[in-house]
Simulated assay, not measured.
Amino acid sequence: MESSMTVKTTLSFTDRHHRFLTDKVGQGVFASQSAAVAAALEQMMRDEEERELALGAMAEEIRARLDTPRADYVAAEDAFAAARARLQAARGA
């Protein structure tokens, strides 16, 4: 379990960011500017974890496909034949 110790720090924001934080606190969306920044950081951390998981899954899929014997490859013409047939039928061709 990660530590939940509070660390005091000083941050600088553009006027735009400061107004946004102040508005969100004023609207009651966040209890404080610190809470808003913490929520943004948590979202960034979740996004990074999800991105790492997605990249890992893609890497695994690429490795699996690289290990596929050439005899098991499907020709592009065969792979898309059913879709092409449906498109032609829908177009009345």
Rank of each mutant, 00 (worst) to 15 (best):
S32T: 06
L11R: 03
V25L: 05
L55A: 12
A71V: 11
A54P: 03
T22M: 07
D72L: 13
L66G: 14
R16K: 12
Y73V: 05
T10W: 01
D78R: 11
S34N: 07
H17T: 14
D15T: 04
R70W: 05
D67R: 15
G28M: 00
T9C: 11
A76C: 02
T22L: 08
Y73T: 09
R65A: 12
D47K: 03
M45L: 09
V7R: 14
Q88H: 03
A35W: 02
A81T: 01
V74H: 04
F80I: 13
A36P: 05
A93C: 04
L41F: 08
A85R: 08
K24D: 03
E2V: 10
E77N: 09
L41S: 07
I62W: 11
H18E: 12
L21G: 05
F30N: 09
A40N: 08
R46A: 10
A76I: 13
I62F: 10
G26K: 04
Q33K: 15
E49N: 06
H17E: 14
V29R: 10
A40E: 10
F80G: 03
S34W: 00
A83W: 04
R65T: 10
A54T: 13
D72E: 15
F30L: 05
A75N: 08
D23C: 07
A35G: 06
A71N: 07
E77L: 11
A81D: 11
Q43Y: 05
A39C: 04
V74A: 10
E77S: 15
D78V: 11
V25S: 08
R91K: 10
A40M: 14
E61Q: 15
L66N: 14
I62Y: 11
A57Y: 08
M58F: 14
T68C: 12
F80K: 01
V29H: 09
M44C: 09
D15H: 06
A64E: 15
R65K: 12
H17W: 05
A93I: 08
L11Y: 01
L55S: 09
A89H: 07
E60A: 15
Q27E: 15
S12V: 04
R63C: 06
D72W: 07
Q43P: 00
E48T: 08
L41G: 06
K8C: 06
